[in-house]
Amino acid sequence: MKKVIAFLCNWCSYAGADLAGVSRFQYPPITRTIRVPCSGRVNPLYLFKALYEGADAVWVSGCHPGDCHYQTGNYYARRRFAIFNALMEYVGFEKGRVFFSWISASEGKKFAETVKHIKEEVEKLPPRQKFLREND
């Protein structure tokens, strides 16, 4: 089973995941969720680290623009991830291993759909080889 490290913001996406659960929307159990106060709290180092430690993909999800609990956290996040994306793509790291989304607390459906989408994308790819910490 693939593993996706999901950094979900406490106020929107995490609540969205909750809603997906209570609404009994089915989604594949590939995510390992790390609950963060805000997508703006996600240091890009976390993403590098998760990939380095062997995650098949990383996923950051926060509130929609304008809806951030802390007013602007997700706007900062958006800039950071734009740069992160550009850098990883530039050095030739595979596409389809890094995901970003905005999911609100009321979007349980979207949460489930997004997980399904991520699973599909990740399963298209061969096993991870690049940028992996030595383990043997």
């Binding site: 623009p65 304008g66 706007y75 900062y76 958006r78 800039r79 991830f81 994306n85 905005w102």
Partner: peptide, 16 residues
């Protein structure tokens, strides 16, 4: 510094 600020108009086509 650009990562110490933001614009509501920043591009976001990479976001699902």
């Amino acid at each position: 510094p650009p990562l110490g600020t933001y614009s509501t108009e920043d591009k976001e086509e990479f976001i699902l």
